[in-house]
Amino acid sequence: MKKSKSWIRICVHLLLFFILGIHSSKFDVNPVTDDISRLAVLRQNIPKDYKIPVHYVSREEGGMCWVKLNVFYLEESLKDLAHKFGNISSNRKDISIFVQMLQELRLNLGSVEPIMYDFECHYREERWQTARYFDFVKDFLLAAQIREDSDDCEPPPCPTTSYTETTEAYLTGHEQSTLNQVVERSLLSLLFIPLLALVFLLVWKLRSRRNGEDLEQNPGEGGLFTGTEGTAPPLNAEISEKNKLNVIETV
């Protein structure tokens, strides 16, 4: 009886050892938390004012399906960001680690297309600066680690005007106002052309009037071949007079 009890105790201890050992290994080894430290390095290596495009659903609207709704587009966003760097860049290697993590997460989540389709009107497109972007990546990875998600998420009502349409309307209005400013400046520049022509015409008239007044004050300067020289008898008359004198002398 003593031997059987001792064996039972040994088996119980071994079973508890294996159970506690497995659970301790799960809690001690946390690759997501270890890799999150790389985000701080990426934030320092990428300029603060660099704008990174992101397509996402807010946490308030996504609810328990927030991870499923954002895993695909966040993966695509990180892929595009990784391609901005060279093949041997450390930034590209660090970003590729997160891309691989998101790929594995997406496979474990199963098909995410149906829930993405249900929340289609709630997606937003923005361009975030480096700090905000990597804060979003960090929050997403921590939420994915906790896995407080659900397979049945009811999307909230779609907004009357989608965020994308509002953004496009704003950009269109901004472009229109810029175009109006350009047209106004062009019209103002065109107004200077007739104004310059008018000034040139006035100057020309003033100069013409002054030249006319100078000619009236000095009329002799213009008639160089007038005066007493103009009353001289013609050459034929002189010859005829000489002939007459010769005839008289002969007689």
Rank of each mutant, 00 (worst) to 15 (best):
E238V: 02
F119N: 01
T228S: 06
T164A: 02
Q129C: 07
G110Q: 03
V203C: 12
E126K: 06
E154M: 12
P157E: 11
K138M: 15
Y133A: 07
L179W: 09
N218H: 05
G212V: 05
G222Q: 09
Q129M: 09
T178E: 01
K244H: 11
E168I: 08
L196M: 14
T164W: 05
T172M: 05
R185F: 04
F136I: 04
L188F: 05
F200Q: 15
V199S: 10
L206N: 07
S177I: 00
L224P: 05
T231M: 00
V203L: 06
C153A: 12
L196T: 15
Y170F: 06
V251P: 00
L245Q: 06
P155S: 08
G212Q: 14
L179I: 07
S208W: 11
L191D: 14
V247F: 04
F119E: 02
L245W: 04
E126F: 04
T226C: 11
T231A: 02
V247P: 01
L191W: 08
V203F: 13
P194D: 08
V137C: 01
A232N: 05
S162R: 01
Q176E: 00
Q145V: 01
H122A: 00
I146K: 03
K205S: 11
F136C: 04
L141Y: 03
T164I: 01
R210A: 15
D152W: 13
S162M: 06
T167R: 09
L206K: 02
D118K: 13
V251D: 00
S162I: 01
